[in-house]
């Protein structure tokens, strides 16, 4: 996209100076960041650090969808929310903090649950989708919608002391179903009460996702395409696992069985 030096006010030049100084970013890269529109699912453990850093970076528009209210038990890890915002919608709590951080960024707060009926209508206006959800039905719904709509997707997950990050570029690399074809049966997945999570972990995974998104926007470096990054916090170990695209994948394979968004039963823990 075009770039003129007058594009930045003096305040913006100062705010983004540590970006502009980087040869890989510069004014042109910052202009790309300012023009980018991202769609974030979840204002929880992952969504908070993701949106916090992307707002600080000056991403033009960030939509955040979440139908939940802030609960006292969230505050151990969901760093946008506070004791004062317990009981109000998470997207409103997040919007207040993010707008105060950077008025350049347009925050679109959507207090809804994503469904097969509404998701495509939302993501079609955005460049990149970011999954910070905490349940399998949403994870599969978001994956399938992004594959069908051809939208790049940053996907992250955390449980206990382990986190995973991957970046899905439909048509180029693997998708979530290449990795795990079907949703696990409900009983096999630990619920949040059984699971637990050390509060810093979603911060680490979420900031990795934010970094992936900025690299996608800038077109610099290598993203986690065809790759799953696994972080073991107890052992302080990062491991990259190759995930080839599966030609038999039910949604992105050569003969996909899934051609439209179907039913995604949502009965997992939503805390």
């Amino acid at each position: 996209m075009g770039f003129t030096e007058d594009q930045f006010t003096d305040d913006q030049m100062i705010r983004y100076s540590r970006h502009i100084i980087l040869p890989e970013v510069g004014g042109k890269g910052q202009a790309k960041i300012s023009a980018a529109k991202v769609f974030l699912i979840g204002a929880g453990g992952l969504g908070c650090p993701i949106s916090y850093y992307l707002t600080a970076a000056g991403v033009g528009r960030i939509a955040i969808v979440d139908d939940d209210m802030v609960d006292l038990s969230n505050l151990q890890r969901q760093i946008l929310h506070s004791t004062k915002t317990v009981g109000i919608p998470k997207v409103e709590s997040a919007k207040g903090v993010l707008e105060a951080l950077n008025p350049d960024v347009e925050i679109v707060a959507i207090k809804e649950r994503l469904t097969p009926e509404n998701i495509i209508g939302y993501i079609k206006d955005y460049d990149i989708v970011i999954d910070g959800s905490d349940n399998f039905p949403t994870r599969y719904l978001v994956n399938d919608a992004c594959v069908l709509a051809g939208k790049p997707l940053s996907s992250g997950a955390v449980l206990r002391f382990e986190g995973q990050v991957t970046t899905i570029i439909p048509g180029e690399g693997h998708c979530y179903r290449c990795l795990f074809e079907e949703m696990p049966p409900e009983g096999l997945v630990p619920s949040c009460q059984e699971g637990g999570v050390l509060g810093v972990l979603p911060g680490i995974i979420g900031t990795l996702q934010a970094m992936e998104v900025l690299k996608l926007i800038l077109g610099k470096g290598d993203v986690l395409k065809n790759t799953l990054l696994i972080y073991d916090a107890l052992k302080t170990n990062f491991r990259k696992v190759k995930v080839p695209r599966n030609p038999e994948c039910p949604i992105c394979g050569t003969n996909p069985a899934i051609k439209e968004l179907g039913c995604y039963e949502a009965n997992y823990c939503r805390a």
């Binding site: 030096e5 030049m13 502009i20």
Partner: peptide, 14 residues
């Protein structure tokens, strides 16, 4: 500094 360089860099880029 560093705005001397930041402003100069924005000019060169354009």
């Amino acid at each position: 500094c560093p705005y001397t360089f930041v402003r100069s860099k924005l000019s060169i880029e354009s």
